[in-house]
């Protein structure tokens, strides 16, 4: 447990020092969301209908920005060898790094999402729903992304390949995430709850899937 904590703190400290990954993601997120009203026009009805989708897609794309460095940076500077030699199952090492990624790169996105939602004219209750849905659903972005990051660790320009590998895996989260914001016409509390539960299920499944497969990919690639 201590070791798990040590890895998380290590990655958070590095992310904080570099500062760029979180800020890049936040800036990208804000820009993508801001550009949509410019592209589709300022009609309130249209924006209201597409706002949850835009915010979720924006969050998904922004979370990809820092993912390719998740294991690649450690492989490059040799510290991956150290992580592979820890008296801790590699699955847990992966999980710890993923948690650190979520805190450093995705949590800031969730924090600014209410402001962006307001800008798109989302009503107050839907803004709360969005934040909750993002909190529950977005860990799947880090988790599924870790699989792609581990697979592309030795690939030059792995970032692009990572995007293509990982984005299709984001689709279920995206679908239920957008549904659970509840801005759609006639969306009742029951429907929102059901969607949030499905979102939770996807995140939990991703956690198991990610730890195993990313660890396996790392073992193969580290050789």
């Amino acid at each position: 447990m201590n070791l798990l904590q040590a890895i998380i703190l290590r990655d958070l400290r590095i992310a904080y020092r570099q500062g760029s990954s979180a800020m890049l993601g936040v800036g990208f997120f804000a820009l993508v969301v801001t550009m949509v009203p410019l592209g589709v026009g300022p009609e309130r009805d249209v924006l209201l209908r597409i706002a949850p989708g835009i915010l979720w897609i924006g969050a998904a794309l922004s979370s990809l920005i820092s993912l390719d460095r998740l294991f690649h940076a450690d492989a490059e500077d040799g510290s991956l060898d150290l992580l592979l030699s820890l008296p801790l199952p590699l699955e847990l090492v992966v999980l710890a790094k993923t948690i650190a990624h979520w805190i450093s790169s995705i949590l800031p996105l969730i924090l600014i999402s209410p402001f962006l939602a307001m800008m798109l004219g989302l009503p107050a209750d839907a803004i709360g729903g969005l934040a909750i849905a993002l909190l529950i659903g977005s860990p799947a972005f880090s988790l599924l992304g870790a699989i792609g990051a581990a697979l592309t660790i030795n690939t030059r320009r792995g970032g692009l390949l990572l995007t293509i590998l990982v984005l299709p895996l984001y689709i279920p989260t995206l679908i239920f995430g957008v549904q659970s914001v509840g801005a759609g016409p006639g969306a009742g509390t029951d429907a929102i709850t059901a969607n949030l539960m499905l979102l939770t299920a996807i995140t939990l499944i991703s956690a198991v899937l990610s730890a195993w497969s990313a660890a396996a990919a790392l073992r193969i690639n580290a050789n």
Binding site: N2, L3, A6, I7, L9, R10, R13, I14, R17, Q18, E76, D77, G78, S79, D81, L82, L83, S85, L86
Partner: peptide, 27 residues
């Protein structure tokens, strides 16, 4: 202790921070 030809340093961290990260990993 394995020290390969890559140093395993995190360039954003100071020398002492790098050492204390290792220390926390060694427990």
């Amino acid at each position: 202790h394995y020290i390969g030809h890559a140093n395993g340093l995190k360039s954003a961290l100071t020398v002492v921070e790098n050492l204390s990260v290792w220390r926390s990993l060694f427990g």
